[in-house]
């Protein structure tokens, strides 16, 4: 069965979606990611979807859910690399991603996360109590 690797880089978690997302995989990613945010005390999550050819309402909802869940756990989520054809389709579908920050590519996504972490209240950003 497919899994999506979650990589850690400093205070951030990185995911690159390289496989066709079926619904069960999307839900599994949601669960694993929130657990990893807590375990690693990550300040941010970057989701690279530059290889993703289709974002339907289910996938959009998953991205929105992940952003909201990680926010509740003290980490920001940035979605990077939305393809132009996917962006056009998302808008016509009527999908809005209110909680989701986006960046053109992984580089600017990481820069955005570093900036968000650097400006968070308390300086080092570790406001949460350990488990």
């Amino acid at each position: 069965m497919d899994t999506i690797p979650i990589l850690q880089l400093d205070d951030f978690l990185l995911i690159s979606i390289q496989v066709e997302m079926h619904d069960r995989l999307a839900l599994q990613l949601q669960d694993e990611l929130t657990e990893r945010v807590v375990k690693t005390k990550a300040k941010g999550v970057l989701i690279d979807i530059s290889s993703v050819e289709t974002v339907d309402s289910f996938m959009g909802r998953m991205l929105g859910n992940i952003a909201l869940m990680t926010q509740l756990l003290g980490a920001e989520t940035v979605v990077a690399g939305i393809r132009p054809a996917v962006a056009i389709t998302i808008v016509e579908l009527g999908l809005s991603l209110p909680n989701v920050r986006t960046a053109l590519n992984v580089n600017s996504g990481m820069a955005m996360l570093r900036q968000l972490a650097g400006t968070s209240v308390g300086g080092n950003g570790h406001e949460r109590q350990p488990e």
């Binding site: 050819e53 289709t54 974002v55 339907d56 393809r83 132009p84 054809a85 996917v86 056009i88 389709t89 016509e92 579908l93």
Partner: peptide
């Protein structure tokens, strides 16, 4: 774009 819309 046509492909992406129809697939979605």
């Amino acid at each position: 774009v046509d492909q992406t819309k129809m697939v979605t």
